[in-house]
Nucleic acid binder design. Structure first.
Lengths: 340, 340
DNA sequence: GTGAAAGCGCTAACAT
DNA sequence: ATGTTAGCGCTTTCAC
C-alpha cells in the first residue's frame, strides 16, 4: 500500500530513525557522511516522508489555504496564480477555498480546513473585522485587499488610484459621477467610495453612490439603469465585471460610451482590454500581490511568534486609460458632435 | 495550542475513545443515545477531529489535488470552479497545482503532494500516456480533457464539435483552412487536428496544420503570420487565447475578420464574447466537467477497488457562432464588397 | 453496542 | 553527532 517508512531507511542505512528524520528536516545537525548516506539510501528505497505523520508531531503541514470571496471573478485568478507559484517555490501546497460571497460559508470552510493548514490567505474577505481579528489571533493570517487593525495585509493601493481616476474624469470635463458600489460587506467597496468621494470633493465634482451591487456582469444591467437615472456623465463601477455588464446595458440602450457617458472599472482583468469600448480601469500588480501575501505568511510561520508589527503592504495601482472614458459631449459640446 | 482531543471528549462523555471515534466516522455502529451524547459533548468542547491523525491511520485525507497544465489559462478556471464546488459539497478539500506546461514540474508536484491527497484530477496533462497509466495504477486518477486507455476521464466531446466547426466554415464558402496547433505534448491538440482533418476531407475542404504554438495570446502574433502565409481563408486556433492573439495581429495587419479571413477558437472563455469581433468558438460545459471529474474520483475512492470499468464521460461541446466567422469575400464575392 | 490496546510514521526531548 | 524513547490524535482489530 504505502511506501517505505523512516524505519526502513534507518535500518538500511544502519542509523537510528531520529537520524533519518534529522537528515531530512535539519540537515545541519547530522554528520556530513551520515547525511549523504541516509539521503542516498532514502532515494534508493523511494522513501517519501509522510506529511501526516509529520504534521501530527510537528504541527506543520507545509500547506496554506487561500480563501477567495468568489472564485467566479477572474480578478482572483491572478492573485491565485501568484500565490500558487510563490507557495510552490517554497515547497508549500496551496489549498483553494471559495467563499461564494458568503461570510457564513467562508467561516465554515476556514474552520473545516483550519487543522490542515499552517495559515490563511484571505482575499477580499467578507467577514466582520472582529472575526478576522479573532482568527488572526489564533492562526497566522494575511489579508488581501482587506485591512483590519493588527492583521498583516497586502492591499493594492487605491486611495491615490481613485484620486487619479476622478482627476482623469474631471480633466475630461465631467462634473458629476456615480459610484456603483460592491457588496455591502466588501471592505474595498467602502474604502473606494471614501477615496472617490474625497477626491470628488477636492476636485469640485459631484459624486453619488448607488448600490450595493453584486460584482458580476449580470448585475451590470440594473446598475447601469440606476446610473443613468442619476444623470451623472461618468460611472465608476466597483469592478471590471460590473463595468462590463454596464457597458452591455448601455449598448443595448444605445447610450454611447464615452460620448454620452464614461465608464471606468477596477482590477484591469484580462477582459477589460478586449471589450468594446476597451475599459478604462484601475489595475494593480495582482499576481505580485498574491506572491507578497504568501511571502508574508511564510515569514510569520518561520519567524518566532514574538510580536512582529502587523505589516501592511500596499503595492501601487495604476490607472489604465482606454476607450471607455472621454469628454462628455452633452456637457461640453466644444468638440464636433452634439449631445445624445 | 491545539484544541480538545478525542480523549477529552471521551472522558467528558464517560465513554471510550473508540466510541467517540465511531460516533464521528461510523455513527451507525453506536447506540442512539450514546451517539447523541458524544456529539453533544464534542460540540460543547469545540472538538474538531485532527485530520492528520485521522489520515495517519486511515490513509484517507478528504483532500483531492487538481493539477492544471497552466493556471494562466482562464479556461481552467471554470474547471477549477466546478471541481472546487463539488469537492466542497462532499466535504473534500481541493489542492491546486500548476504544472506550468511542464511535464517535469507536473510530475514533481504530483509526487510532492501524493501522500497528502486521496486522488488526482489531471487537467490537460502534458505527461506521456505511460506515465499517466502508471500513476493511475497506483493512485486514483481522473483525467480531464485527456484520454488514456484504462484511465477514467472526462473529455469535452470535440470530434463532432470539430466536424460542426468545419461544416460551418464550409457552408460559408471556405475551401481551405489552417489549424494552429497547441503544444506538442497536448493530447487535445492531436485529437482536434485528427477530427478537423477528417471533417475537412469529408467536406472537401483543404486543411493545413501549423505550429505547435503555446496556447497564449502572445503567441498569436507568429501564429497569425504563419496562417496568413498559408493562404487559407479560415483559421482554427487551438484555443481562444491563441485565437484572440491572432485577432490582434490580424487587426494590426489590417486583415479584416471575417471578410478576409475567418477565425475560430476553442473553449468559449469569458473573453471570447467580448473581443472584437466576438469569437466563434467551440464551447463546452466546463464547470460541469470539473464537477463530473470530482464525482468520478470520489466514487472511485468510496467504491471497492475491484475492477470497475475505467469510465469515460464526454459531455457535448457546442459551437458558439459569433462574429469572427463569415463568408470569405475574396473567395466568394457574391456579396456586396470586393476582396481585401 | 462498547471498551482496551496496539499501532499509523514521524518528531523531539533527553541521553550518550 | 547520534541513539532511545515517548508520544502526537486517531482508527481499528479484538474482546466482551
Amino acid at each position: 500500500m504505502s511506501g517505505p517508512t523512516i524505519y526502513d531507511v534507518a535500518r538500511s542505512a544502519g542509523v537510528a530513525t531520529s537520524t533519518v528524520s534529522r537528515a531530512f528536516t535539519n540537515p545541519a545537525r547530522v554528520g556530513e557522511a551520515t547525511r549523504t548516506r541516509v539521503l542516498e539510501v532514502a532515494r534508493e528505497l523511494g522513501y517519501e516522508p509522510n506529511p501526516h505523520a509529520r504534521a501530527l508531531t510537528s504541527n506543520r503541514t507545509q500547506t496554506v489555504a487561500m480563501v477567495v470571496s468568489d472564485i467566479t471573478n477572474p480578478h482572483f485568478f491572478e492573485l491565485i496564480r501568484g500565490a500558487e507559484m510563490r507557495a510552490k517555490a517554497a515547497e508549500y501546497t496551496l489549498v483553494l477555498v471559495n467563499a461564494e460571497e458568503s461570510p457564513r460559508i467562508e467561516q465554515e470552510q476556514i474552520r473545516r480546513v483550519a487543522r490542515s493548514v499552517d495559515g490563511f490567505l484571505l482575499a477580499a474577505s467578507r467577514q466582520p473585522d472582529a472575526d478576522l481579528a479573532e482568527l488572526a489571533a489564533s492562526r497566522p493570517v494575511v489579508l488581501i485587499n482587506r485591512q483590519v487593525r493588527g492583521v498583516p495585509s497586502v492591499v493594492v493601493e487605491h486611495s491615490e488610484g481613485c484620486r487619479q481616476m476622478v482627476a482623469h474624469l474631471a480633466s475630461l470635463g465631467h462634473t458629476s459621477l456615480v459610484y456603483l458600489a460592491g457588496p455591502r460587506n466588501s471592505w474595498m467597496a467602502g474604502s473606494r467610495w471614501a477615496a472617490i468621494r474625497a477626491a470628488a470633493t477636492e476636485l469640485g465634482v459631484t459624486a453619488h453612490r448607488s448600490g450595493p451591487y453584486a460584482p458580476t456582469v449580470s448585475s451590470g444591467g440594473a446598475a447601469a439603469d440606476a446610473a443613468i437615472g442619476t444623470g451623472a456623465s461618468a460611472i465608476i463601477a466597483h469592478n471590471d465585471l460590473l463595468a462590463i455588464g454596464v457597458l452591455r446595458r448601455l449598448a443595448q440602450r444605445s447610450v454611447r460610451v464615452p460620448d454620452d457617458v464614461s465608464v471606468v472599472g477596477f482590477d484591469d482583468i484580462f477582459a477589460a482590454d478586449l471589450c468594446t469600448p476597451a475599459l478604462t480601469t484601475l489595475g494593480g500588480p495582482h499576481e505580485q500581490v498574491g506572491r507578497a501575501a504568501v511571502e508574508i505568511l511564510l515569514d510569520s510561520l518561520t519567524t518566532r511568534q514574538d510580536r512582529r508589527p502587523a505589516l501592511h503592504v500596499a503595492p501601487p495601482s495604476q490607472l489604465v486609460i482606454r476607450d471607455s472614458t472621454g469628454t462628455p459631449l452633452g456637457a461640453a459640446p466644444q468638440r464636433q458632435g452634439g449631445a445624445g
